[in-house]
Structure formats: structure tokens, C-alpha cells
Simulated scan of single mutants.
Amino acid sequence: MGQGVRMTTMRPHPALPSPPACGTPAVPPQLICEAVPESVRAARRFVRAAAAYQEPGTPEDALGTLELLASELATNGVRAARSAPVGASIRVVVDASWGRARVEVHDASPRLPYVRPASTLAERGRGMLLVERMAAAWGYSDHAEGKCVWAAVTWR
């Protein structure tokens, strides 16, 4: 991973499938990145690898959708974190099992996401519209340290 990207490990959740055979690299369940544009690519790669590891046999189209959702959420997280009063980082979390996957992006900004009406003249602002249309569900929660924005994909 590039400079400014820190991967951390956590104990596996008891409901997750057992890890693959020896020799397969383990993917930690969260990725902490600096709030810089390069972190969006790291988030996409991490989300694909983590979902495929946690739920072997995840269809390629589900992984692609999850990557797109991660890209949009991470881009928004990077923008929001850079304007936040506390810290300039994002945290990406993946939870995949039983035909579904959820990606979360945490940042320190209190600004909540919303879906803007599509405009053919605007250069930005379509990310949450894409999330709304591509995700099986999406939402957010705010807390004292900022917020968490999540999106879920299902298959089977």
C-alpha cells in the first residue's frame, strides 16, 4: 500500500466463514487512509479483496458493484474528512457473508450525505445518486466523531 495507508487487523466475527487454506493472504476487515485522492484507489482494491476473502464465490458483478460503491463513498469521505475539524483520514470497513456485502466509510466530518438531483451541467454531485441506484440499500449514522456512510449489495 502507498504512504498514508494503514491496514489494521481485528478479530474475525464469529459469523464469518473460516479462512481459506494456508498460504492465502488474510485481508484485514478495515483500512485506514489519509484523506487524499490516492486513497480512493486503495479503498476500491481493499473492498474487492476483503469481500472476496470473507465470502468466497462472490459473483464478479457483485464485486464490481461493491467497488463502484466503495469508490463513491470513499471519494465523498476524502472530501468530507479534509474539511473536518478533527483528523484527515477515512476508515473503510467491509462485512460480507451469506450473499450480501456491506461497505462503510467513516470520516470525521459532521456533514451528512444526500442525493442531489442529476444535472447535466454539474461536474460533480452524482455520487450519492449512483449509490442510491446501485446499492440494495444505503444509509448513514452520525456520531460525536463524525459519521459513517454505508451501502450494501446482495446476490443469490
Rank of each mutant, 00 (worst) to 15 (best):
L31S: 04
L31R: 00
I32A: 07
I32C: 07
I32Q: 07
I32W: 07
E34D: 15
V36Q: 09
E38F: 05
E38G: 09
S39E: 06
S39G: 12
S39M: 05
V40L: 07
R41E: 13
R41D: 08
R41Q: 15
R41T: 10
R41M: 09
R41S: 11
R44D: 11
R44P: 02
R45H: 14
R45W: 07
R45I: 13
F46T: 06
V47W: 03
V47H: 01
R48F: 04
R48T: 11
A49K: 08
A50P: 03
A50V: 02
A50M: 03
A51E: 06
A51R: 07
A52N: 10
A52V: 08
Y53N: 03
Y53E: 01
Q54W: 05
E55D: 15
P56V: 04
T58A: 15
P59S: 09
P59W: 06
P59G: 09
E60A: 15
E60F: 15
A62D: 09
L63D: 04
L63C: 07
G64Y: 09
T65P: 06
T65D: 12
L66S: 07
L66N: 09
L66H: 14
L66R: 05
E67R: 10
L68G: 05
L69R: 00
L69V: 03
L69C: 02
L69I: 01
A70F: 04
S71N: 12
E72L: 13
E72S: 04
L73I: 04
L73P: 00
L73N: 03
A74E: 03
T75F: 09
N76R: 02
N76D: 13
N76S: 11
N76H: 11
G77Q: 10
G77E: 06
V78M: 07
A80P: 02
A80H: 09
A81C: 10
A81S: 13
R82L: 13
R82G: 12
V86K: 10
G87P: 10
G87K: 08
G87A: 15
G87M: 10
A88S: 15
S89T: 12
S89G: 06
I90W: 01
I90V: 12
R91A: 14
R91N: 11
V92G: 00
V92W: 00
V92E: 01
V92P: 00
V93R: 08
V94C: 03
V94W: 00
D95V: 13
S97W: 12
W98R: 14
G99C: 12
R100K: 09
R102N: 11
R102Q: 12
R102F: 04
V103G: 01
V105I: 15
V105T: 04
V105W: 02
D107L: 03
D107W: 03
A108R: 03
A108M: 03
A108V: 02
S109P: 03
S109E: 11
S109D: 09
P110K: 07
P110E: 13
R111V: 14
R111C: 08
